[in-house]
Design a protein around this nucleic acid. Structure first.
Lengths: 215, 215
DNA sequence: GTATGGATGTATCGGTTCGATACATCGATC
DNA sequence: GATCGATGTATCGAACCGATACATCCATAC
């Protein structure tokens, strides 16, 4: 199926879980949900939607030509097709949601999985966070060794690029560490507790995070 | 030609500028040069190399079967093809290097261009940095407006994902600001000055950068 | 009133790019 | 002396993007 379409499938299932949507809106939401990453194109979205209909995860609600807006003199407005989750779709969502392994913590997948963490159980959350962390740790290691191997023969700009890349990954690891310890705390505590490891929340800063969030 | 292959072309020209390399090594260097981003596959590299040979930017040095390593009893070792820059290739490199515009500060392109900043003139550098900054500012704006539009109906995890994404972009803008002011300073100063806006260099920290680079 | 332009919407097509794989040599380790 | 992993070139089918076509709605300006 392709890694990217796999991530898209989860995103679609998750977004349609609460309310039916049509393609255009769906795409906007998917892409703002994963704001930082690459955007999905229609050329990926529509074929994926059709495939999911074929597999019976989704159903199409054709609007026939009835009132979309209760406007007068409506006749043949180009219908917008609302996609709705079937029971099989809900099952599929649960299945994808609970899966751990590389297909959950790869660069392509992690964001979507994280976005729907609220619907996953604590065990799955923890496994994915740990997996993602060690994935990044790997990346960090080869980064550092490549850097130390070639430091002499790099000019200032290339070196700065490497340094910045390294710092970004380090920062992400730190973020994950905070999330992980927040999860651990909420396991020991009543299950109604929220993570909120961000900057600005008064109650329980995760570890020792400086809130140097100027402006 | 495709945006991605365009970036690859510049990377190849830049890496071969000093010394010829063969495909395997070339791929490793390209991908470690742009460490953070997506890696290029052979399925992209080899066709691109062939196209560049066809356009006369590169020449292939077939090793025939001579000594690659001065080992004894050599005969028909599978030759590794070293790619070498032609004069036209050098011209092409200069041309790509000096171009500004979206094709220099897009997500796909910025990293490669920055990596070879040392070979570009100060004017080009500044234009690309400014362009990149405003590109990120755009992204920041739509990020923030999307966030304020939907804040209420987001659960804690989705919100945290958004917050983290936003923070990453903000951090990148800050990085660019430091680079830009370092560039400005080195324009007023003698042209032999180095940027070195990173953490750890004693001389001239760019603005007010905290070096909280623990471990 | 109407045109011009932009947001909303569905859909497809050509070409680019990926991921997996085949194939082959080399050095090491057991 | 065989098995393994790294090095190396190369290709193919499938996945994916980007651009575009087409159509309706609604604002604002003319």
């Amino acid at each position: 199926m392709g890694k990217r379409a796999e991530a898209l499938e989860l995103a679609i299932l998750g977004l349609l879980h609460d309310a039916p949507l049509h393609g255009y809106e769906l795409r906007k939401r998917v892409n703002s949900l994963l704001g930082w990453g690459r955007a999905f194109s229609y050329g990926t979205l529509y074929p994926t939607l059709k495939a999911m209909v074929r597999q019976n995860y989704l159903a199409e609600d054709q609007p026939v030509d009835t009132l979309v807006t209760p406007a007068p003199h409506r006749s043949g407005r180009r219908g917008r097709i609302a996609y709705r989750l079937t029971p099989e779709g809900k099952e599929r969502f649960a299945e994808l949601l609970s899966q751990t392994g590389p297909s959950a913590w790869d660069d392509e997948h992690f964001g979507v999985h994280f976005a729907f963490f609220g619907r996953a159980d604590a065990d799955t959350r923890m496994r994915i966070l740990i997996g993602r962390r060690s994935r990044l740790q790997e990346k960090l290691d080869q980064f550092r060794s490549a850097l130390s191997r070639t430091r002499e023969r790099l000019d200032a700009y290339t070196l700065e690029l490497q340094r910045h890349g390294l710092e970004s990954v380090e920062r992400e690891v730190k973020w994950l560490d905070d999330l992980i310890s927040a999860e651990r705390r909420s396991i020991d505590r009543p299950p109604g507790a929220m993570p909120t490891p961000g900057a600005g929340e008064p109650p329980a800063p995760p570890t020792g995070n400086e809130g140097e969030n100027g402006r």
